[in-house]
Design a protein around this nucleic acid. Structure first.
Lengths: 225, 225
DNA sequence: ACCTTATGATAGTAATACTATTATGATTGT
DNA sequence: ACAATCATAATAGTATTACTATCATAAGGT
């Protein structure tokens, strides 16, 4: 069974909301396929239109340009993760359990057990790891930020920080710890695949997860004492 | 006094070595200025030619395209850092001192006390923080990697790992620790400027440095016991 | 049956990302 | 001092990209 979840997306992240029409959804799913297969710098709306089976002009009705499209996928990912964290940690009792669960979700590539809409989760996660940071590292970041594009990411960081403060009230850098782990894990996964000498994943693929779990507990334990 | 250091760059990182001619050097310095001011995605060789006072075609004689140019700057940065680490830690005696010195150099924006060639160090460091990772996050990473473009980065990671192993022989993830710190610091600097809610730098700008220094010592201390 | 809206089809423009050619001036070797 | 070589300037040209505009048609709601 495929559940169709409609996530609240910031208004300026699109020209016309792709979640509202069949073509819009088709653009989203095809763009994930295409970016994953040829890379973000190599996509054009023309190629994407061909893949979707529509025209260039129609895609421009949904997104101003490919940067807005990537940003949309990025924001969608964080909205989805925010949703997952809220619902899936709801039944857990301690902050420690909730934190561990959320971190594990964010640093592993494990998919939600509920298949979401027709979006290929695995490919979306790949895109976030390989291209996601590009939607942050742009000259007009401040304008983009004002549109609320990163609000879900910020909420997640804020939520996880709250749990950290619960566990180790004196720890002074909860936000930095969280983003170091999240972004670090993305990067190390990429390194493991392409630049293994920058990592220590020779033996097995779970090393990234182990490392950041160790990092988390170590940092919180020392500050607890 | 400006010292002209000629760093060994991998051969395929250029069409014609820009360090060998006056125009080549002018292209390097102007590209740093221009990328820093308008951002990597917004530069074109035409704009760059205008800035340098030369023609588009002349720039193409040095670099195939702007990705190769960015990659060159990135590789140059790591070659420079590798050189600095080697020379500036030479006189230090313990692995701990050497490691601390190198990490501090890599995560702070402090410039070398020797002004190097005519390259604006401060702007170069900004570019590395804001755009550097884009030369890694590209679809043809594996081909690029084979040209040796990242060899200096790898050498640095390997050197710092060796010092870590010296300090804490049992620590299992030295490379991941090093790259987590280096890349993390770059990101946190960027966040501090544009997305402060993802960091904890409200109070002062040295927080990034403090956090990663704490991270380093904490991780190594626990594994020592 | 009418009105609105979404899409398709087509065309066109400006900028980008190159490649090619030729002339000229500077540098080097003998 | 001269020829040969090389680097750059100047110019032109092409294919692709990144859009914008217009109009016809199909689908969906009232």
């Amino acid at each position: 069974m495929i559940v169709q979840i409609k996530l609240n997306m910031p208004e300026k992240s699109y020209v016309k909301d792709p979640q509202e029409t069949r073509l819009g959804m088709a653009i989203l799913t095809s763009s994930i396929d295409l970016i994953d297969s040829i890379g973000f710098e190599n996509i054009t709306f023309k190629k994407l239109a061909l893949e979707v089976g529509t025209t260039e002009a129609s895609i421009y009705r949904y997104f101003e340009n490919k940067y807005q499209l990537l940003l949309y996928l990025y924001a969608w990912y964080w909205a989805f993760m925010n949703y997952r964290i809220t619902t899936e940690t709801f039944h857990l009792h301690s902050s420690k359990e909730k934190l561990d669960y959320a971190i594990n979700m964010l640093i592993s590539r494990e998919e939600s057990n509920v298949p979401i809409s027709m979006i290929n989760q695995h490919k979306l996660y790949s895109i976030i790891e390989n291209e996601g940071i590009k939607s942050i590292l742009t000259k007009n970041i401040d304008t983009v930020n004002q549109t609320g594009a990163f609000s879900n990411y910020k909420e997640i960081v804020s939520q996880l920080s709250a749990w950290i403060k619960d566990i180790s009230p004196s720890f002074p850098y909860p936000n930095m710890l969280v983003t170091t782990i999240i972004e670090g894990a993305h990067m190390q996964h990429y390194f493991a695949e392409h630049l293994p000498r920058l990592t220590n994943t020779e033996d097995n693929q779970d090393t990234v997860k182990q490392f950041y779990q160790l990092l988390l507990t170590t940092m919180l334990n020392t500050s607890k004492k």
